[in-house]
Nucleic acid binder design. Structure first.
Lengths: 354, 354
DNA sequence: TTGTAAGCGTTATCAT
DNA sequence: ATGATAACGCTTACAA
């Protein structure tokens, strides 16, 4: 049995920099640099010799030195809500897809948990030139982080958009259109009494766009169809969803259709429905906007517009790369309204009890 | 009504570096540097003048230049499973707590989604001196990333541990002890037929520590108590949990106690139990290891050892900081076995059917 | 095809 | 108490 090696195997006692590679390959530092970047032709023989040395010692250019010289870091900043807040599944998919898209483009991602008021991590990000650009999540209608980024002249893309998004790059879900579609879908099925289970009142109070836009669109769509609409704020957790449904049944038993954009509340909503012994979709139809896997997990499977979070993260990275490469290009937006996937939670309204 | 400003407000057309601050304050660059770092005494008057200029223009030292000069980046690398895999709640809490703990220490976090086989993002992390240290999640019993990190001589801490963890820094949950405790708790309540719902077979096959250690400890504890044990691998999702329970009822109807470390399967397990019309804890007891909020969400509330993910992330950052500051210090570990929180899902075993 | 040298913005070592 | 200056490791214009 071999002896345990507790000491790290210090393979490279000496500093491995481009000069050392050059020395070992018997060329100048610039030749190594050019061999690596390909910005100047290097003879096949020397290129091969250099590559052999590099492979042998596992050399990679020092990121800080390169960043200092080139003026860019090959790193993207991703500003996420602080950890104290539990992220929704859709938010997590944003993070995951941004990180993965960036990795595909050989870009690193620096995470900054930011609570909105200026914290040091965010300050470092923008004024320390730590990143070439920033992706901002969970945008408010009035968002001071956007202002700070604009002042710093740092390229950025938002997932979500402010109240005045004309001059910025953003990717967003068209909650207004999707909620309206859900209402129309239910109205087409004969539902006349419809409720909206929205995001939390606190979120709306702090100017969270989707909450506002969903509410406005809901009211308008319901009015268009001559239906009656109730809208209910609901915190982002299952317990709140259950409580919210209980209240709804108590105060508005006439409701036959529910529209929801609160995916975190879905498990609680389902539980509330089951406990009340309400049959979906026979007695009650439910439609909404949610991450696809949550819609599939709902029982019965939820008719919903599936938020394309994975592609949105990739789009955000793409837009940001363009913004970085060509800062003077005209602004671009992406407002996504994915189709509603018909699953099993909506059906014609039950006949009114006589 | 004011005209919309679509152009970013370019407040600083000129490069704001330490030289420019020095010029505006009428001092030398070194004085500015020392005023900022406090490594040399600077007269109150000049210090104040410098600070005024800095506040006015919002200057912060260029991170790349500082990293190049100091030889450290003030950045930590966090290696996470690739986005394609949906992270469990506990894993997410690790990420969140690491990022937050790092931010508290004024450290930035670079995310590297790594699939195990060498990908470029991981390579950049270790050989490009992009970070001062690395936190590794989802460690395998034999993990080549650990070897690479050791070879690179880069300080690192793992969340989880390899089969031979003696020479490395790590923080881990003592799944073996916790599973044993669950078995003993159930045995104390009179349960003689106990099942373990483990993580997936694939995970175990690729040498995932918790899956192995849980299984071994389960077998041993069951043997100690003279009970009968069934162990079942289960994929990390609700559907698998439901399916797993259905199979369990079909093949082993004699089971009265379940131990589970698969938190992602919990919602499905609950659903399966409800559909089978089994009363918990009267007919069936369930105990496990899970994130506290998932245990609270289970119905009835799950008796479980609550994984202290939030403090573990903080501990990992703490250990890593020590490792970076004093690489020659002896290795340190942290094996956590939080107590089992008695909730509502366990009760004395039902009397055997006669 | 290759080498030389300047400079990116900092910090730290000399001086003064 | 402060200023000049030399690195840190890299890229790239300029020479050869």
């Amino acid at each position: 049995m071999p002896t345990l090696r507790c000491e790290p195997i210090r393979q490279w006692e000496i500093r491995m920099n481009i000069g050392e590679i050059a020395r070992r390959a018997g060329v100048s530092r610039s030749t190594v640099s050019y061999a690596l970047s390909g910005r100047r032709s290097v003879s096949a023989a020397t290129k091969q010799r250099i590559q052999a040395v590099i492979d042998e010692v596992g050399y990679r250019p020092n990121a800080a030195a390169r960043a200092l010289k080139e003026g860019r870091t090959r790193t993207l900043g991703l500003v996420v809500p602080p950890a104290s807040l539990r992220l929704t599944d859709t938010q997590l998919e944003f993070v995951a897809s941004v990180v993965e898209a960036a990795a595909r483009a050989d870009l690193d991602v620096l995470l900054s948990p930011s609570g909105g008021d200026h914290d040091r991590s965010f300050e470092r990000l923008i004024s320390g030139r730590r990143v070439d650009g920033v992706i901002l999540m969970e945008i408010r209608l009035e968002d001071e982080r956007v202002t700070l980024l604009q002042q710093a002249g740092l390229p950025f893309v938002t997932i979500g958009r402010t109240a005045h998004p004309e001059g910025t790059f953003w990717v967003d879900v068209d909650y207004a259109a999707l909620v309206a579609r859900c209402v129309h879908h239910l109205a087409d099925l004969g539902h006349r009494e419809i409720a909206l289970i929205n995001r939390s009142a606190e979120l709306a109070a702090t100017g969270y766009g989707p909450a506002h836009r969903a509410q406005t669109a809901f009211t308008e769509a319901v009015r268009q169809r001559g239906a009656t609409g109730i809208d209910l704020p609901c915190a982002d957790d299952p317990a709140a969803g259950e409580e919210c449904f209980a209240q709804l049944r108590e105060r508005h038993p006439e409701i036959t259709g529910i529209v929801t954009i609160n995916e975190a509340a879905l498990p609680g909503l389902q539980r509330g429905i089951e406990r009340a012994g309400v049959a979906v979709p026979r007695e009650l139809s439910v439609a909404g906007v949610a991450a696809a896997h949550l819609a599939e997990r709902f029982r019965p499977r939820l008719t919903a517009a599936d938020v394309p979070a994975l592609t949105m993260g990739a789009h955000a990275v793409e837009l940001l790369q363009e913004r970085i490469a060509a800062p003077e290009n005209p602004v671009r937006h992406l407002l996504l309204a994915p189709p509603i996937s018909l699953r099993d939670s909506t059906a014609p309204a039950p006949l009114p009890r006589t």
